[in-house]
Design a protein around this nucleic acid. Structure first.
Lengths: 234, 234
DNA sequence: TCAAAAGTGTTCGCTATACACCCATGG
DNA sequence: CCATGGGTGTATAGCGAACACTTTTGA
């Protein structure tokens, strides 16, 4: 490899490598995804997943965390690799292979992105046409999240520290696109024994107080050890 | 005029992109993985996952299928992307990002690789030290297979067309590293109704004949549709 | 006083699990 | 005739799904 004249030359063709980040949030009502409006060609003016090229001195995951931080100000979020996309013509400029990640952030910790970027939350089933193959990436990410939630308590990554059972149930319904019986859902969660019920209550509707709960990491670890893994059967 | 061999120039640094392929097989007794002995530096003489650089005109998956065919002669196998590995120093020569795949092949269809390659099957828990970060890739692949087998009938991709219940059970035990009660396993499979029992029998031990079964794709599709997905609960 | 939301149980049916029984074969 | 492996059935416990009852609050 030779690096003279600001140029990088190789004996064999090397594709560019980028990351794209599917950032999920939850406003207590709807599952959402963070998109940015592209300021340059190609697809100028279109909405797209936040992303960028992987730098020389960072891993793909580093790059994804950097993107996440730039758009949301969140530095310690749940992040997981989704899949690499390598279709030959997926970027009209040159061959770009993208390693996609999905991230789960607590909406309350997001301090709007840096001023340069035009970022916005979209409800998961109200996203506009996206640039590149980002529609497919988003679709894959939703499926991955849906699968993940069966094996790990990732739902709590999207919720604030303290939440009501209804918020939790609603989140699961949003993710899995199904509806649960309120009472069965509560029974099931209670049996798991991985939530602490707090003394405080809140008033989500003007009707009646609701208890606040918090995730109990220690109890979860014990549950997982005792049952040889974790499974949310719905 | 360019007199060097370095013919591909870019404005920014581009990593090389390769694929590595975790090829699983099953000999009727043990779960196995196909490894190749490296003929060149680095790690010359070490065992490694089959792999190679992604070509200009192929996707990562194309590359993985090509590797699979070169090593096994199998052209239509179950193959799935596992994960991209992008640690900066994972290859001592230059920066190489590897997109790993795992493949499931029926041992009976494998006609030893091409003569150039030194390929060998290893029992899954008897693999030697591997080159690069291939140990970690293999570990991730095993976990992915274990997870996958809960949602898709991928076990049958590893078995011949016709097999005994014991072979099936043994495969599941190998993959999931647990033991099942013979009778409960049979009852569960029978209830699923996704196997055809054939008239033919075989004599796996010198004791008694055992029925041969085959996977019934149609019944599986119906099961999946009726139950809104497939789940093997173990 | 009524509707809406929250908290707590109860019942029923399915299925995972443990385990019993019979049949066939070769030594 | 008995040890080994294969094929089939039964009883129990636990969980998911359906659903009843009570309390609190604002209109």
């Amino acid at each position: 490899m030779n690096t003279s004249n600001d140029n990088y030359t190789y004996q064999y063709p090397h594709p560019a490598v980028a990351t794209d980040c599917v950032i999920f949030g939850y406003d207590g009502n709807r599952l959402q995804v963070l998109l940015v409006e592209r300021g340059i060609e190609p697809f100028k003016g279109s909405w797209a997943l936040p992303g960028g090229f992987v730098r020389e001195n960072e891993t793909a995951e580093d790059g994804a965390r950097r993107e996440l931080f730039e758009e949301t100000g969140v530095s310690h979020a749940y992040i997981k690799q989704l899949k690499a996309y390598s279709a030959i013509e997926r970027d009209p400029r040159e061959r770009v292979i993208s390693i996609a990640f999905f991230a789960l952030v607590k909406s309350c910790e997001v301090k709007g992105g840096d001023d340069a970027s035009q970022a916005r939350w979209f409800n998961i089933d109200e996203v506009p046409q996206l640039a590149f193959d980002h529609q497919a990436i988003l679709q894959d990410a939703i499926e991955a999240l849906r699968r993940e939630i069966h094996f790990e308590p990732v739902g709590f990554e999207l919720l604030p520290e303290r939440f009501t059972i209804r918020e939790l149930q609603n989140l699961y319904e949003q993710v899995l696109k199904v509806e649960f019986d309120r009472r069965n859902f509560f029974n099931k969660i209670r049996r798991l024994g991985i939530l602490n019920r707090l003394k405080e209550t809140t008033r989500p509707t003007p009707k009646k107080d609701a208890y606040l709960f918090e995730f109990n990491q220690k109890a979860y670890n014990e549950f997982k050890a005792k049952h040889n893994g974790f499974r949310m059967e719905f």
